[in-house]
């Protein structure tokens, strides 16, 4: 049982990382704490629900295309939000930036409610990925393993992009010192919009992949954003590798914690976050 829960936890961790990576990327570069990140996840899930029956239903290829399309559309919405609204307030106080994203949460929640209604929706796991494999007399759903694989692929791609490409260099430079990057003659606006769109893309894809796993409803935004905040803060704001470690740890902790302290799992995660922050406050003072 423990083994099963650890695997489940790792899978949830990978999902958590996909959401949190976008959040931490956006914070790292633009210093914006994006409350609307969970809303983008939710949008991805609903769009997947919408497209799935129309694009080669039931097949693996169809599902992958569906999720990619949902992710791209989410990225487009994110880019529009960045260009129309966020760009005007980069110079303003952090609090104002945050409130703007809260406004976006309200808008997206209502859009979802008006378009898809208040009921829980569900989308089926594609036939090609249904079923389960037997490992050591335990059954694991193929879909969950597939999601874990896709998630790990995303992690590797993300890492490679950040580590080896010119875009990655710019990204790291911008996280480190925005002003310096601007002085080098690089158009900051492109970086900011690009990062926000990529973050939204990651959230949208994560939402799409998570869609067949549970019910899709308009409350997803807050549940997802609290989890993502946990990961990002524990991993260190703006740090991708930190977020990865934190996501896996929290995923496993939650899944295993459910076995032993079913009621305390959620509290434990936040207590860890609080401890990390408090320890940090002692460190900072030397």
């Amino acid at each position: 049982m423990l083994f099963v829960q650890i695997v489940n936890g790792l899978m949830e961790g990978v999902m958590l990382f996909m959401v949190a990576s976008g959040l931490t990327l956006i914070f790292g570069v633009s210093r914006i704490v994006n409350f609307a990140h969970g809303s983008f996840f939710m949008l991805g899930a609903f769009l997947t629900y919408q497209f799935a029956p129309h694009i080669l239903p039931g097949t693996m290829l169809g599902f992958v295309l569906t999720v990619i399309m949902a992710g791209m559309l989410t990225a487009f919405v994110g880019a529009c939000f960045e260009v129309i609204v966020l760009r005007r307030i980069y110079h303003a106080e952090e609090l104002l930036q945050l409130i703007v994203t809260v406004g976006m949460v309200m808008i997206m929640r209502d859009v979802v409610r008006v378009v898809w209604g208040m009921n829980d929706l569900a989308t089926a796991i594609p036939d090609a990925m249904s079923g389960a494999v037997n490992v050591d007399s335990y059954w694991f759903p193929i879909y969950n393993l597939g999601v874990m694989g896709i998630g790990l692929l995303v992690v590797v791609v993300l890492w490679a992009v950040v580590r080896f490409t010119r875009v990655g260099v710019l990204l790291r430079a911008a996280t480190d010192d925005r002003g310096m990057v601007a002085l080098l003659g690089i158009n900051q606006a492109y970086i900011f919009t690009g990062v926000f769109a990529s973050g939204s893309l990651l959230a949208g894809i994560a939402g799409g992949l998570a869609a067949p796993l549970g019910s899709i409803n308009f409350l997803l935004d807050t549940t997802v954003i609290t989890g993502a905040f946990l990961v990002v803060v524990i991993g260190g704001l703006g740090s991708l590798s930190g977020a990865f470690a934190a996501a896996l740890a929290i995923g496993v902790l939650k899944a295993v914690g459910v076995l032993y302290f079913p009621r305390a799992a959620m509290v434990t995660a936040f207590v860890i976050m609080a401890i990390v922050l408090i320890v940090r406050s002692f460190k900072a003072r030397g």
Binding site: E93, V102, R109
Partner: peptide, 20 residues
Amino acid sequence: VVFWELIMGVVVITVTVYSP
């Protein structure tokens, strides 16, 4: 209206951006 939260969101964003 049904989508009042959407309008509230727009109001919040507009006020924040244009009248801090």
